[in-house]
Design a binder for these strands. Structure first.
Lengths: 335, 335
DNA sequence: AGAAGGTTGATTGACGTACCTCAGAATTTG
DNA sequence: CAAATTCTGAGGTACGTCAATCAACCTTCT
């Protein structure tokens, strides 16, 4: 009841199983004429190799690494949690996932982590730095497939990017910010680091929409909070000292500091942040945050593994496979 | 190189392969003591089932039916498309999916469709009617597992519900409606049919939020458009004749009529609808609609199949397996 | 003691592919 | 035309699991 097998192809091509096998796995020793006949039969019957059976037979085990910042709070914690959950499920499919934690914003540490990896493919979440790009390039040159996760590294020569469209994420934030702010006012934007591609792209998108469609708002210069709660809190309190903030767009992490700061402000600015974490969920519920734009990192991890498998099999993954969806949460639709 | 197999477990537990198999696939007929010993051996050896081998060997074929309204536009069209796409993928997992189209809102036709189904489990999308509930109960009595899809049928005795939390969907619509409407005004709500559980629940949630938090808005009596574009258009034009509409919440289908009507209104009311279809997508992009609340029906279909498989295997599916997420789309985050 | 029922072991044949060997056929080469 | 070479067929084993059968054992109860 499930598709045609090598047997059907052999029959259709009027050759033996051995010959079909030789053609399919290009073992050579088959005349050009017969190769064509087999290829035609494959096309005609619609045969597709049963990867599961193939891997079973050859005892292939995929070995993938995730090189991601460590951290026990916020988004990275969710990422590690998602990885841990998937790890179990993936073992059933003969996929071994190794997680290599790095220090966030520490280029040297991240480069070191990328060295001496022993696996078929790597997923990297890192900021943009020439050293990292170089290391990825050399990994790639040595036959390891590399994908960038969450934040893209386009000039590294990575094979694929798995993550959201961050410009779109910023534009979306901008749209809701503009609509939620009833009158005009000052809007504060806080990124973690502008060297992180995801942050700078979000900022770009946010700025575009605010300028195009909500000209009444004034954008303050973008601040960098280093994904650090204390710094973020300080930035907000400082900005609010001599002006009324109508809105705050927090692009990176450090939301616990943001919550503390916003709770001291009256009137409360419209506050839009990224990533649905326990902190942001609670802040949404209590009305401190107005909107959370989330990337479903579990689906990101799943997509990453799928793409890494495709890449190591040398089959081109579908074009939109790496694009993960943006989820928008307000206080009414968090579960 | 790949992990331990059943053989290793058998050896570790000092039992035969047959017994390990009996425990792993809970076939019964094993004493509690031995079950424990095998379980311990599984934990000790770190055995994980090889899914590829399992699927390869399994010859059980699951036969599932989807009894859903026919239609070549709007949400139901997306549903059929999702079913068609999944059907292909599922064949590889020995799942046969049969789609039985019914006439929307035609109780007699739907009851007839439910009769004489020959399968292991059924997913039903239908309005609430005593006849349908009865038919489902009798199906259930004859050993067929039944789940309700998109719209719940709680009093039918169905085994599970797969769909969004529609009260939450309505509350979410209410929240954004309240925030988007800058001044006070009249809000029109158009359902398809209040007999459809999803519609009445959305209405309930919307009303609750508007009354609780946005008292400035006046809710007009809920209209029923029968999921029909012409009727919906007529309802809007009529309501807008002698008053200014500040907002429209369209709960069901018929969005093409809504687009036509809203384009004639000035000032344009804030318009929030359900389901991301080609029509609503285009209306979002052009600014006719302000927000679309979408249930990702493909993930719904996937969840439905998974639950049906669990049910026919007599393993209880996880509690939240049937809950499908609500996606919120504005003009900036449609791809 | 004998029957009945519950438990366990031993064994077998799929599933679809990979990979190997050996023999025989077809073709080319000297 | 015989020898060397290339091509093709037939058949086997293995991968890890599922699913089934049959035989043997152990209790327990009458």
């Amino acid at each position: 009841m499930s598709g045609p097998t090598v047997r059907d192809v052999a029959e259709a091509a009027q050759v033996s199983l051995a010959t079909v096998d030789r053609v399919l796995n290009n073992r050579g020793g088959v005349s050009a004429k017969v190769v064509d006949r087999v290829r035609a039969a494959v096309a005609r019957t619609g045969y597709v190799r049963n990867l599961a059976a193939a891997n079973l037979s050859r005892r292939r085990v995929y070995r993938f690494c995730f090189v991601v910042p460590s951290g026990d709070t916020g988004f990275v914690a969710l990422l590690h949690e998602a990885l841990a959950r998937e790890q179990q499920r993936l073992m059933e499919e003969q996929v071994l996932v190794q997680v290599v934690p790095t220090k966030a914003f520490d280029v040297e540490d991240q480069v070191a982590a990328l060295r001496n990896l022993d696996c078929d493919a790597v997923a990297v979440m890192a900021s943009e730095a020439p050293e990292i790009n170089e290391e990825i390039a050399s990994l790639h040159a040595s036959g390891v497939r590399v994908i960038s996760l969450v934040a893209d590294l386009p000039s590294s020569g990575r094979d694929a990017y798995v993550g959201p469209d961050n410009v779109m994420a910023g534009r979306t934030a901008g749209e809701f910010m503009g609509r939620f702010i009833r009158d005009q006012g000052d809007v504060l934007m806080i990124a973690g680091s502008l060297a992180a591609r995801d942050h700078s792209e979000r900022l770009l998108g946010f700025r575009m929409v605010m300028q195009e469609r909500f000209g009444g708002c004034t954008l303050l210069p973008a601040a960098q909070g280093g994904d650090n709660a204390g710094r973020v809190e300080q930035i907000v309190l400082e900005a609010a000292r001599d002006r009324r903030l109508a809105g705050i767009y927090a692009i990176g992490a450090g939301n616990r500091g943001l919550v503390r700061a916003v709770r001291t402000l009256d009137p409360k600015p419209i506050t839009i942040v990224h990533e649905l974490t326990p902190t942001s969920r609670e802040a949404l519920r209590s009305g401190t945050f107005d909107l959370v734009i989330d990337q479903d990192i579990l689906s990101g991890v799943i997509a990453a593994v799928k793409i890494m498998r495709d890449l190591t099999e040398a089959t081109t993954p579908p074009a939109d496979a790496g694009r993960i969806k943006l989820n928008i949460y307000s206080r009414e639709n968090i579960q």
